[in-house]
Computed example of a mutant assay.
Amino acid sequence: MRIILLRHAESLGNIDELAYCRIPDHALPLTPRGEEQARAEGERLRGLLTDGPVAAYVSPYTRTTRTFELLGLGPIVERMVPEPRLREQDWGNLQDPVEQEIQKQKRHEFGHFFYRLAHGESGADVDDRVASFLNELEQRVEADPTHPDTALVVTHGLTMRLLCRRMFSWTIDLFESLSNPEHCAHRILTYDRGTWSLDRPFDQWRDSPDKTTQL
């Protein structure tokens, strides 16, 4: 079994934070640069996906579904499942820029994992729903002999890190020390002989305070 985790391409919210004040988070489009990133990543992925069909699980946000479309994987994808549990951390509805900065500062002081945004979720909330997704995916693969051995998960940066945190039982200290992957960057999880492995680590902006590592 192999799971390819892919962050969406650059979106409007990544270059203009005020976009969150006028456009719902789930509706933010890709930038022109983001569309180019997605097409280029599609070429790279097609080089990886030569050994059989793929099941795609995609966050239903506009930036993730559009990223998936632009990958151009065509008949390689045997099934595509919109999966709300893979969505971005919920920051609430249309955001006030002043309140948004306050929330970011409070989250930084309190801890990114446990701080629950005033009208949204904590990292722990996202952790719970990605655990549910992983558990259901495992059950689906076991119960359905036609399910492809490769799953492509098109999601968001924080969600990618939390999927790996759950898979490898990383500590909260380690999770909070990791950086999001770049736009359209992927990570590959491979299951072999009862063990999951990660093809390459996430960048870290600091050493984990508890001295744990991604290995």
Rank of each mutant, 00 (worst) to 15 (best):
E138G: 01
G157M: 05
Q95M: 14
L163T: 12
R107H: 06
D127F: 15
C164A: 15
K104E: 10
D128R: 15
E99W: 09
A143E: 12
A151W: 04
R129Y: 04
Q139R: 15
L174F: 02
D173P: 14
M160T: 10
Q105A: 13
D144C: 04
T150C: 14
E101I: 06
T146A: 14
F114K: 04
S132D: 09
E176Y: 09
W91L: 12
Y115H: 14
F168M: 03
L94D: 04
L158D: 07
H119K: 13
Q103W: 11
L134Q: 07
E176K: 08
R140C: 02
Y115Q: 02
R107S: 14
R140D: 11
E99F: 12
L162N: 07
A131I: 05
T146W: 06
S132R: 13
E136K: 02
W91E: 00
A151S: 15
I102C: 09
S122H: 09
D128T: 12
V154D: 00
H147F: 15
K106E: 13
E101S: 10
H108T: 11
A118M: 12
Q103N: 10
G157W: 04
G120A: 08
A118E: 12
Q139M: 12
L117Y: 15
I102E: 14
Q100P: 00
T155M: 10
G92K: 04
G123F: 08
A124R: 11
A143I: 06
Q139L: 14
Q103P: 03
S122Q: 10
P145A: 04
R107N: 10
G92V: 06
G157P: 03
H156E: 05
A118P: 12
G120C: 08
L134H: 00
V130R: 05
A124P: 00
V126M: 09
L162V: 13
A151G: 03
N135P: 00
V154G: 01
T155H: 05
L162P: 00
L163K: 06
L137A: 02
E121T: 03
D128Q: 13
T155Y: 07
R165T: 13
R116V: 04
D173Q: 12
Q103D: 11
G123C: 09
S169I: 00
T171H: 07
W170Y: 14
D144R: 10
F133W: 14
R107D: 05
E99V: 11
D144G: 01
D149Q: 12
R166K: 13
F168T: 02
E99I: 07
V141S: 06
D173K: 11
E101K: 15
H119Q: 11
H112N: 05
R129F: 07
F114H: 10
A151C: 13
L94M: 04
T155R: 09
R107E: 13
N135C: 10
H156G: 05
L162F: 12
P97I: 03
Q139Y: 02
E136R: 04
D90V: 01
E109Y: 00
T150Q: 07
L134N: 03
E109V: 03
L163F: 07
L158E: 09
F110E: 12
R165H: 12
G111D: 02
C164R: 07
N135A: 14
N135S: 14
M167R: 15
L174D: 01
R107Y: 01
D144I: 02
F133D: 00
G111R: 07
L152K: 00
Q100M: 13
S169V: 01
A131F: 11
L158S: 07
R107C: 13
G157T: 01
Q100S: 11
R161P: 08
D125N: 12
C164D: 05
H147V: 05
L134C: 02
